[in-house]
Amino acid sequence: MKKTIPIFITLFLVFFIACTGDQECRKNRYVNLQIGFYHSTYNSTKDAYVDASFSVDSLTLQGIKTAETGEETLVDSILYNNQKSVSKLVLPLDKSSEQSKYLVVFNDVSDTITVFHTNYDYYLSLECGCIKTFSIDTVLTTNNFIDSVKIINHDVINVDAEHIKIYN
């Protein structure tokens, strides 16, 4: 009897303390814009144009921050620095602006990509906090290397998916 009570109390405490630990975030917090590179080629057996993925030999990419005055400055850090064999871009969109602009150098040819987006606060949990998700409105590019773009998925959320196709 004298032993039962401490055992009971210990079990009771263990039972509770075991369940009050701080939980950590187990949700994906990464929200990135994904862009793939494609050639559109004519497939005679299917009698249709099909997309074939390709990689750029060397690619350099940097963000361009547009100030309220309209002045554009390059973001100091470089996202892709002369990287080899790039077939896909994974880019952070600007959370504090509704426009994200990038300077991309394909081999030696420069283009800018401007993505216009609407931003949303997306609350995950107390442990994970809040993330920004985006809805792509428009994509504008210069056409030195890039032939055309196609938005295949407007919603940029914390799910790994391709959003934009760039055709060369």
Partner: peptide, 20 residues
């Protein structure tokens, strides 16, 4: 109340603090 929810952006260098 949920306070001090920070959304920071490493690349573009912005930080936003949300309070609900």
């Amino acid at each position: 109340d949920i306070s001090n929810v920070t959304i920071s952006d490493n690349y573009w260098g912005t930080t936003e603090v949300l309070n609900y």
